[in-house]
Computed example of a mutant assay.
Amino acid sequence: MLKRLFTKRKVPVTFLNYNGKIVDTTLFDQNNYDSLRKNGITISPINIIHSASIHYTGRFDNSMALRFINSFIDIIASVKNTTNNGDGLLFSDEESNEFQTKSSEVIAVGICITITSNLFNISRNTINLIEGSGKRCDFCFIKNSLQYYIESKGRKVDINPAIKDIFKKKSNYNSISPKYGVISHIPRDSSSTKVTIVDPDFIPEEINKNEKIKRLFLYYSKLSHMIGFWRLAELLRERYNKISEGFNYTDFNNKPLDYDNVVKLGRRISISTKDISFDVFMAKNSQHGFKKQVGEFTSLFLMEAKLLEILEQQYLDELLQYQINEQTILHNDKAFSIQNDGSVFAFLLTEDIDKHG
């Protein structure tokens, strides 16, 4: 089970000059761009699920945990076995069309977030879901204090209509047009997944420090819910709302959040690997946090301990600069997907978790 989910697969990436519009590479990290163009991206199914966790909309709008459990189930049943690192990323064609459509959405979002973070050399915490209804792009991200939009699409068959739609959206909805479009071709006919990137014209807008902090509050509010720190999530959301109402981030800088009184409503667990410590809050209310039994393992979301301290103490200048190295760690008795926003998706033996309390 762990090997199937954590084995890295190779996904080719094509940068497509469409209808005379040449892909602008000036924003890219050039080393990462060269690597993606030549070698594609290597990614495991668990990396995809992890990447989609914050931004996948799906069902259960009022519960991040239930939404993620739903997406987790959608993907885990679709992944085909592979024997070696570097094999192609294949998904099953045995499920119903409805199931395949749902899982393709999660897969496309996870791949898009991963490529965006890598290609632009940005932390995932600078990538935000564009909320609201109507025809709009999926995500925005900040680089060098400028905001760009990005559109994610996943298709089982022909991707050309998806590419045309991205450029059509640019002409019809200029104010929210995508700077880049990431289209994942996810066939269900034993062919490997591939990605195509296109680049409509777009003029970015400048984002100030106050707005950056506000978005980080929202991002980590969502992540805190996934990790079970529901009260921390509420307090971060409150400060997000305050800035939206006109407060300045300096009103909260270095002013700690107080939520110690929630200890009696669950238990805080610390887990370490490779000299990095991570925390999770096992709330008694199952609506808080992601926790799912998978065979003899329990899958959990965790947060890097230093990041948790930054959020609790509201060291906001540190929060703006926060980023850790991404890595995937696989052992016989545990496995970790660590991403640069400080989130960790872990599989741990259930009996080991039970020892904590």
Rank of each mutant, 00 (worst) to 15 (best):
P204I: 15
R239L: 14
T14R: 15
E131M: 10
Y219E: 06
M303K: 01
T273S: 00
D87M: 00
K306D: 11
V23R: 03
H331M: 12
K143M: 04
F347N: 02
I163F: 01
N84W: 11
F68C: 04
N121C: 04
N208H: 13
S71M: 02
K292F: 07
R239P: 08
F6A: 10
A65S: 13
D201I: 01
D317M: 04
L316E: 00
K209T: 15
A335Y: 00
I213K: 01
Y33H: 04
I127G: 00
I73L: 15
L66N: 06
I276M: 08
T7C: 05
F72R: 12
G132C: 03
K80Y: 07
N261G: 02
L129C: 00
I22H: 01
T42M: 15
S299M: 05
A346Q: 08
F202S: 12
I54M: 07
G20F: 02
D34F: 15
S343G: 02
G40P: 13
R67T: 02
I276V: 14
N210L: 09
T250A: 07
N62S: 03
K284E: 06
V109N: 03
G266C: 08
K355C: 04
L308H: 01
F301L: 15
V344Q: 07
K264M: 14
H50A: 04
Y315Q: 12
T82Q: 04
I207Y: 00
Y322C: 05
L16V: 03
L235G: 03
V294I: 11
S221V: 04
S221A: 15
F99S: 09
T83K: 14
A305H: 03
N160Y: 11
D279G: 09
N160E: 05
E98I: 10
H356E: 12
T7E: 08
H288E: 10
G289M: 08
S337L: 07
F217K: 09
S177M: 10
S117Y: 01
N253H: 11
R59Q: 07
E245I: 09
S63K: 08
S177P: 03
G134M: 12
F297S: 03
N70G: 15
A233S: 15
V11W: 00
L235F: 13
L89G: 08
Y240A: 08
S299L: 07
F15V: 06
Y149M: 09
K284H: 15
E304R: 00
N17P: 06
T25L: 06
R188W: 11
T83Q: 07
H50D: 14
E312S: 11
E205Q: 06
I186S: 04
N19E: 13
L5D: 06
T193W: 00
F336W: 13
I207D: 13
L223I: 08
D352Q: 09
N174H: 12
I22K: 05
I269V: 15
R67G: 00
V79D: 09
